[in-house]
Each structure stands twice: as C-alpha cells, then as structure tokens.
Amino acid sequence: MNIFRLAGDMTHLFSVLVLLLKIHTIKSCAGISLKTQELYALVFTTRYLDIFTDFISLYNTVMKLIFLGSSFSIVWYIRRHKIVRRSYDKDQDTFRHYFLVIPCLVLAVFINHKFTFKEVMWTFSLYLEAVAILPQLVLLQRTRNIDNLTGQYVFLLGAYRALYILNWIYRHFTEPHYVHWITWIAGVVQTLLYADFFYYYFQSWKNNEKLQLPA
C-alpha cells in the first residue's frame, strides 16, 4: 500500500458516501444517472468475485464490502425508495447500458491477462469502470445545470482514478514484477474521459458560476 493508493481509495470511498448521504438526506436523486450507478454496481460485482476466495487484507475486504454495499444501496434508493424514485428523471437518463457493457465484455474476452472466468470478469470490470461515467456526463449535459454535490461526486470519482495512476507509476518503479498494462490503459482512458469535465468544473469554480457543460 502506498500513499497514492490510500488517498485514491479514500477519495473513492468519500465520493460514494457523499452520493449516498445526499440521496439519503434530501431524499432526492435529481441529476443522478441511475444507469451509471447500475454500471458501478456491475463493476464492483465483477471485480470483487474473489472477495471470499482470495483474502488480501482486512482493509481490502472491508473496502470491497463498503463499495458493494453503497453502490447497491444507491441503486435501491433510486429504483425502490418511494420518495427518492419520484425525483429520478428517467426520460433524460436514457443511455443504453448494453452500448457499454457489450463492447467491454467482447474486449475483455479478447484482451486479458489470463483467459479464465474470474480474470475475464475482472478485466471486464476495468473496461466498464472506465466508461461507466458516460451516462452521468450525458445526463449532466442534457440537464445543463448540475447541483454542486453531483459536481463534487463526479470530480471525486475522477480524482480517485488520477491518484491511482500515481500509484501505478509508484509501484512500477518500486515493485519489479508489477506489470498490469491493461489496468494502466483502462485507468488512463478513464481519467481522460473525466478531463473535459474537470476542465469545465474548474472553470465554473474559478469564475464562481454554475457549472455549464457544453451541449
């Protein structure tokens, strides 16, 4: 474990807790894409298949349970909670899951470190995580404005992956056998996807105005 990865995990944890707290507190999911949240629940499910077979550390297992629990709770709130679900804008949140799931699955079958079910699922989760934010970014562009909590949520998600990139660079130099080029490429693609959002987020923060994403 290094400081970059710990900071990345804490930022990631904070982002999902901020979102869960927002939905739980104000009983609203306005501006939140259910599609993205469902994709994240799928990312964690396919990535943590080894949660009960490979014990890494208490920290690792606890964090996996928190990410699984929080992502499924968020999906439950938006789908099932009698008050929250009323604020879900299903007419605007129309991104098709399978446009992302199927290409990631095909790619994982052909490009992976080892052709086993768990390894292909793990690789699939990496590719899917890189693009899972797209329905949320599309929704933000459609609804033009975003409330600052959603902006912070997306910002923290991007920041966590950027910290992970620093972690991979650090591990590349400190651990001789640490080679995970698939992780690195997926992680860089993911962070680049956030880059334009970062740009507009900083612009709005600097000019102290509501965040407007270009159509």
Binding site: D50, I56, N60, K64, H113, H177, V179, T183
Partner: peptide, 10 residues
Amino acid sequence: GGTTLKHDEL
C-alpha cells in the same frame, strides 16, 4: 512472465 496476477487493488 513474472506478472503476479493477484489483484491486490480495489
């Protein structure tokens, strides 16, 4: 190669 396929990251 020597790549450890143990995924120790979240």
